[in-house]
């Protein structure tokens, strides 16, 4: 038998299409976009996505797309580990599962059994569910929760469509969180107060080591600055903060870079959170994900959570809070 080196396929060279999504116009649009990809019809997305013992790392290198139709629930209560920014009705939805980026600390590695990316094409059902929820009062909705929606915009333009949907729903505020740097995709959209664009930032050294396939933080920051200048509500998220060697200098420098790049006083707010993760997810991540020191740090175990000790947590958040307090009012600094 000839010896050979392992060669992964191109990302998205395979697209699984669920029977229920087969005739949807969004499916046709995505298939046109990937006309060279192989298409495989499937009964249900979970036949691919939820099976046991998947090769997570190889899938992450060359993920397949799974086009599916969502049924049942469209809105979820926010996790206890995420900030709600004072909103009483804080929900998230899942328009996609998984992310094009490959962050070593990402909880999705522990949450989902597959690294393939699921896109739910029936956006109209999400809109209908949101309308129904809005009838009961104002709603704060995180759109880019178990994915990075703007990073998928070249595949399926959901960010743009949600912003347009939100514009005419006064009771609705959406948060769209990303590590993407391509603000130009949205530059032609008139800003709306109903949408908060949120960028997650890390020190360059942290991003280089732990945030594979993401744009450098300097580019993300430039995108955030452009959005701010254009009149958008912009949130910056330093989350997760990692206690890596030299973390004090790295995070202090990041805040300085932010203050230089944009008018921090105009920011909607800043959200800070040290690394924290569900202990079961961490266990799964050690088995599935590419091994990195973040996964093997001696975290303290607090009920279902693995995170830094209370002392470490305090020192990390105190430093960042004091750095940001020089540029932004204290009431706009949220600590998770």
């Amino acid at each position: 038998m000839p010896s050979t080196e392992y060669r992964p396929p191109r990302p998205f060279s395979r697209i699984y299409v669920e029977d229920a999504a087969r005739d949807h116009p969004e499916t046709a649009r995505v298939l046109r976009r990937f006309s060279r990809s192989r298409t495989v019809p499937i009964s249900h997305y979970k036949d691919i996505f939820n099976r046991p013992r998947q090769e997570w790392r190889a899938q992450k290198e060359s993920p397949a797309l799974i086009l599916a139709a969502r049924h049942g629930e469209f809105l979820y209560d926010a996790s206890a580990y995420t900030p709600t920014f004072g909103h009483k009705r804080f929900h998230y939805n899942a328009l996609a599962l998984n992310c094009v980026y490959d962050c070593a600390y990402c909880y999705l590695q522990g949450m989902f059994p597959s690294a393939h990316i699921v896109l739910f094409v029936n956006i109209e059902d999400y809109f209908a569910a949101t309308e129904a929820a809005l009838a009961e009062g104002p709603l704060y909705l995180a759109l880019s929760y178990d994915t990075d929606l703007p990073a998928l915009e070249h595949i399926i333009p959901y960010t743009r469509r949600w912003i347009e949907f939100t514009r005419t729903r006064p009771g609705l505020t959406v948060e769209i969180r990303t590590k993407s740097a391509s603000f130009n995709r949205f530059a032609d959209i008139t800003p709306t107060d109903n949408a908060v664009l949120a960028w997650t930032l890390s020190p360059a050294s942290v991003a280089a080591r732990y945030e594979a396939k993401t744009p450098p933080p300097a580019q993300r920051l430039r995108a955030a600055a452009k959005a701010l200048e254009a009149g958008w509500r912009v949130r910056l998220c330093i989350d997760p903060v990692l206690r890596v060697p030299g973390w004090e200098n790295a995070y202090t420098a990041l805040v300085d870079e932010i203050a230089e790049a944009l008018d921090a006083g105009k920011l909607e707010d800043v959200s800070l959170g040290v690394f924290r993760i569900n202990r079961d997810y961490l266990k799964h991540m050690k088995r599935r994900a590419a091994p990195t020191d973040v996964l093997y740090h001696p975290y303290e175990k607090r009920s279902a959570l693995a995170t830094y000790t209370a002392e470490e947590h305090k020192s990390m958040t105190s430093l960042l809070r004091s750095c940001f307090a020089r540029h932004i009012p204290a009431d706009r600094i949220h600590i998770v």
Binding site: P9, R10, V40, I42, I48, Q59, S62
Partner: peptide, 27 residues
């Protein structure tokens, strides 16, 4: 083969093809 149906029970198997190849695929 990218999908295989067991016609006795209707169960379908989808091999997770994570290697590059130049052959055509079929069900």
């Amino acid at each position: 083969i990218n999908a295989c149906t067991d016609t006795t029970c209707g169960r379908r198997y989808y091999p997770d093809i994570l290697l590059r190849h130049s052959l055509p695929e079929a069900g």
